[in-house]
Design a protein around this nucleic acid. Structure first.
Lengths: 112, 112
DNA sequence: CAAATATACATAATTTTCTTATGCATGTAA
DNA sequence: TTACATGCATAAGAAAATTATGTATATTTG
């Protein structure tokens, strides 16, 4: 997931946000979409992705639907109502994180 | 360190950056400075800070100098030459992380 | 004056989140 | 037929944090 440690903790936010745009996605699709959107900067590993998806499902933020396509299994995930709410929270947290870090790192950005 | 998980992995960057501005700082001073700069948004816990400082010292990025002030011990940390170089890397990584996340989360920001 | 709070360091146990490695299975390209 | 792509999964270990302590001195407050 990139050599930078900064991505730790942001996988959930990424997954949830992508699902607000695509309605439903399956795991492998998420890895490809992230690779594409970030021009290869960020590669989601399976060892990180699948446990994260299972956790989001267990927390009731995602619903899963299994489908067989081309004789291969796919698990489609979509946001629940709570998942949609939580996505909004996560995106606010991300905006807040960015603002805070810029205040720390760049004297030009002052927090209110 | 704030309820948001996004700060995971950014402590080292924060410490190094603050030291480029203040020449030398001690642990407690860092916690207060961060609290002040972020208007209380971010509170560095001791359990995170001290091990991080020790690690940076062990890696040769920080030098330490112990002083007794008002009958209390202070450990002043300052950047080594390598520490200064590594700080530049960390700040680049932060800028890159922010750009990548905005590309993922905000369709308006496209990566080159 | 006693108690709480602030200053200043430290570490140990646990949790969270990730990496790395591995496993299984099918389909397609070289 | 061998490698690579698609698609899921988990287990062992590492890294970085949280939470809970512990020690000690100085200052503020009721």
């Amino acid at each position: 997931m990139s050599n930078s440690k900064l991505y730790k903790g942001s996988l959930t936010t990424i997954i949830l946000k992508l699902l607000t745009e695509s309605d439903k996605m399956y795991g492998y699709e998420i890895t490809q979409k992230v690779k594409e959107l970030t021009k290869g900067e960020l590669k989601i590993t399976e060892g990180a992705l699948y446990p994260a998806l299972h956790k989001l499902e267990a927390e009731g933020l995602l619903d899963v639907e299994v489908k067989k396509v081309d004789n291969r299994l796919r698990k489609y995930y979509k946001l629940t109502e709570n998942g949609t709410k939580e996505t909004a929270n996560k995106l606010e947290e991300l905006a807040s994180y960015i603002a805070t870090m810029q205040a720390l790192v760049n004297p030009k950005f002052n927090l209110e």
